[in-house]
């Protein structure tokens, strides 16, 4: 098979004890797409992300990214292939400055060795200057430059979400997984976020795959949507197609129909 660009998941199953969190999931995301993953609470969405990024081991199935099999690879290995992610409950390095948060994400791009760093070889100085330049460039994009010396934990909530995305961008990823990026944001912040995601997707030539509860955001951004319920893929397709799918409506019965608001 010729190496395809993008993400290909085949027959993915993840089991925790007796509970099947994800069963037999297959999906494909083409390079440059902006795709949504939705589903009621507990449908297994975050588990899918965890399996994709190596944080939990799938019991069966394969995950191919850009032609590389990343199925059972550890998280740092997956990251090296250009898969970046954010977390539902924001995982910033809270006691470090905003700038240091970004510097850490630049990790894989450093060329000097441990010894080189200790001896402060010329490459050290070059690359340390470059990482600041790069970081500031990305901070400008998310309007956080003036906060660069602030502790990440002291940022306002919406800015923490943005910083987490910025941090992922520093890795120069090809695929960006966003786990509920708008959670806890007010409508104004959400609109800003939509703009930001569009902007970075274009300027960084990214594939974006996102989990979200805020349907206005999903409907606005994503061209295609996958719907998960009890670990099973129950629908996929364009926005209108999914919206009118009887299985999707049924899955959401009992919850607030997410697209009414």
């Amino acid at each position: 098979m010729a190496p395809t660009k993008g993400l290909e998941v085949n027959g993915l199953s993840v089991q925790f004890g007796g509970l099947k969190a994800v069963s037999n999931l297959s999906l494909a995301v083409q390079h440059g797409e902006l795709i949504g993953l939705i589903g009621p609470n507990g449908a297994g969405k975050t588990t899918v992300f965890n399996a994709l990024t190596g944080f939990c081991r799938p019991n069966s199935g394969t995950i191919i990214f850009d032609g590389h099999d990343i199925t059972h690879k550890p998280p740092h290995f997956v990251a090296q292939f250009g898969v970046a992610r954010t977390f539902q409950n924001i995982r910033l390095f809270k006691d470090l400055s905003v700038l240091d948060n970004l510097k850490i994400a630049y990790h894989q791009n450093f060329g000097y060795s441990i010894l080189g760093g200790i001896l402060r070889i010329p490459l050290y100085h070059q690359e340390e200057a470059k990482v600041i330049e790069e970081s500031v460039r990305i901070l400008d994009l998310v309007n956080l430059t003036e906060h660069r010396q602030v502790k990440a934990g002291n940022l306002a909530y919406g800015n923490q979400r943005k910083l987490e995305i910025a941090r992922a961008l520093v890795m120069k990823p090809k695929l960006l997984l966003l786990d509920e990026p708008a959670a806890g944001m007010n409508p104004f912040e959400t609109r800003e976020l939509v703009k930001l995601i569009r902007e970075i997707q274009e300027s960084f030539d990214l594939t974006v795959f996102l989990i979200e509860h805020d349907m206005s955001l999903v409907m606005n951004l994503c061209k295609r949507i996958y719907v998960l319920d009890y670990g099973l893929l129950i629908a996929s397709g364009g926005v209108d197609e999914v919206r009118n799918d009887p299985r999707v409506i049924e899955a959401y019965l009992g919850e607030d129909a997410p697209w009414q608001s």
């Binding site: 990024t53 944080f55 550890p74 998280p75 740092h76 990251a79 090296q80 970046a84 992610r85 977390f87 995982r91 910033l92 390095f93 809270k94 006691d95 470090l96 850490i104 994400a105 990790h107 894989q108 941090r167 992922a168 890795m171």
Partner: peptide, 12 residues
Amino acid sequence: EDEIAADSLGVN
């Protein structure tokens, strides 16, 4: 600071 976040950023 956060081992899981570090892992996700490619830190071995």
